[in-house]
Design a protein around this nucleic acid. Structure first.
Lengths: 198, 198
DNA sequence: GGTGTTTTGTAGTGATTGATACAAAAATAA
DNA sequence: TTATTTTTGTATCAATCACTACAAAACACC
């Protein structure tokens, strides 16, 4: 019948670990961005030749999409915890911003890979891919936010997306973790105060 | 003596208007970004050939720097008005964010050209140029902010830069003007509430 | 008119981009 | 062994990038 084995049995075996390569590619895309990372850079970093690269990943754009999804899964913000059922919306937002501050300021590649990738790129298709992932994240945020406060969900989601973009930009510009946490707290205070006043 | 006439008299006259070309280039760089805008795009849009382009502007990077400075001068936020002496800092910040919301959501090219250009580019030199302009803007913001509240100037400047990046990103993602104004108000409320609590 | 200066259009530079043609190599299956 | 399948390395491909060599053209000055 249909054989959907993940690793093909016949033929010459792959000389490198695909998951390892994916992890390395993720780090490189995050650090340098889609345009600034060439296939030559990638193949050299992975220690493979172009034909092996294309056989394993299809194209630069396909690899980018796969890497973005991997990033979401591994490094995505824990919205479920931040906005667990019963949490007041301002607290949930404050928690999420705090998570973002810590995540965006950590590691070698700073900022959010999806948000930064969704901005103007030389290759329009790459920007479209990143924006699609960002929209998917936004949709999930909206669901969780609506679970805490239905009436203000649209507004709060817009504000969350904007604030995460700001936090990501500041992180990328080298802001230290402690300071970024303060920024997160101030931004969260904004929505809290605004909703109280309304 | 030394002749520093702006327009050279001798020789074949330039067949195009340099200032007009500069304005067109600014619009194009703002809309497409440094990497996505090729010399071929530029020369075609300006109706000139590459030698005329390089004779007039030196290089793509020099034109970019000139365009960024022109953008600052023409479309820069009016910090002097927003933060006129005697203005309470929260009000000054609220005014500035309101200006930013209106400016970033207007015209064909949305968002702040300097902030968007300061992010990862394929050509590192272009990013450096934009970041230098952003730092210059930041320095000026800091002076004006310190004129209103010395003790909180550093913190407020960091928050202003982060919020402007967020507003720019949301504008670029298509947020409508009215909604962006609300975002600006919420972000300003954050700093106001934070400073009151301290 | 003649000379000097600058811009013009034509055509093309070398470098880099993402992506491949091809055949040898290395595995399984019969 | 022999056949089949897949990956490998070598050596490119055409397209695009920012940029320029060169000579004719178009001006000011004498």
């Amino acid at each position: 019948m249909i054989d959907t084995k993940i690793s093909s049995r016949r033929g010459r075996p792959r000389a490198f670990d695909r998951d390892e390569a994916l992890a390395k590619a993720q780090a490189l895309f995050h650090a340098k961005g889609y345009d600034a990372l060439s296939i030559a850079d990638l193949t050299q970093a992975l220690g493979i030749n172009p034909p092996s690269f294309y056989a394993a990943f299809g194209s630069k754009l396909e690899l980018y999409d796969e890497v973005l999804r991997r990033y979401e899964k591994i490094e995505g913000l824990d919205v479920d915890t931040a906005m667990a059922p019963g949490t007041p919306l301002p607290l949930g937002v404050a928690r999420l911003f705090r998570y973002a501050a810590d995540a965006y300021a950590s590691g070698d590649a700073r900022g959010c890979m999806v948000i930064e990738g969704a901005r103007g790129t030389a290759d329009p298709a790459a920007g479209d891919t990143a924006r699609a992932r960002m929209q998917a994240s936004r949709d999930y945020f909206h669901i969780r936010i609506a679970g805490l406060d239905t009436t203000n969900a649209d507004l709060a989601t817009d504000y969350v997306m904007m604030s995460l973009a700001g936090l990501s930009a500041s992180a990328r510009n080298g802001m230290k973790t402690e300071r970024l946490r303060v920024m997160a707290a101030i931004a969260a205070e904004g929505l809290s105060g605004y909703l109280k006043a309304a």
